[in-house]
Design a binder for these strands. Structure first.
Lengths: 115, 115
DNA sequence: ATCAAATATTCGAATAAACATATATATTAA
DNA sequence: TTAATATATATGTTTATTCGAATATTTGAT
């Protein structure tokens, strides 16, 4: 299982930390949603998600053209708990980003629930 | 209070993470004890402790020639909890270091309890 | 089969973090 | 006051991380 040091290194970058918190808040998000919420270019989002995926902190699934990222449910409890508590106790940290996500037009959400 | 990103950056280095976990396990430790437990040179330990102190993750107190570091009791609960859970759930991560601390001769511990 | 959209990956450059060495400060003991 | 011990800090260098730009891959629609 994941080493605590590697785990915290994964959280020690703004793009990755915010992505994780947003993914945890929303359940599942795709790259274009994170681009909008964080106002970052696509390769930057993808690169950081790839790192989280390599460390098995998130899992991905493809649905059509979109790739959805979610927390790995097999993360050790302590690691899940770090993410949960950080999310719950720091709503201000991602408030503006959640807002941008909400206001986003044409979210691929609908596709998510169908099929 | 401390920003989650800054907090995780502080944990994302082996010397700092192990120092924090050891300090949390032992209550209070001085630089020379951490040097022994982590087998690192003094300026390296001091530098990393200084960073933790600047972010108010630890507090220090001088007692004679020694400076003891402890967790800041005013850390937000979520941050305390991150440190506690990480410590409790990863005993193997610092096992060898705790052993070295135990075996250390001439620990300034006695001074700690007197006065 | 071609094109557009979403995402991934590669690569060289820029930035930041960590390091070892040297030196400074503070305390205690002689 | 001098010497020794514990710790802190300053400095130049090395190493690690992050970045944007360019390109590749995959999928769905035409």
């Amino acid at each position: 299982m994941i080493d605590p040091l590697q785990f915290f290194k994964c959280l020690a970058d703004e793009t990755r930390l915010k992505s994780l918190i947003l993914i945890h808040s929303e359940g599942e998000l795709c790259v274009c949603e994170l681009m909008e919420a964080l106002e970052e270019i696509q390769p930057k989002i993808s690169r950081h998600l790839a790192l989280l995926r390599e460390h098995r902190i998130v899992l991905d699934r493809r649905q059509g053209q979109w790739i959805y990222y979610r927390l790995n449910p097999e993360l050790p409890d302590w690691a899940k708990s770090v993410i949960s508590e950080t999310t719950q106790s720091n709503p201000a940290y991602i408030k503006a980003n959640l807002k941008k996500l909400c206001c986003m037009g044409d979210r691929p959400e609908r596709a998510k629930s169908c099929c």
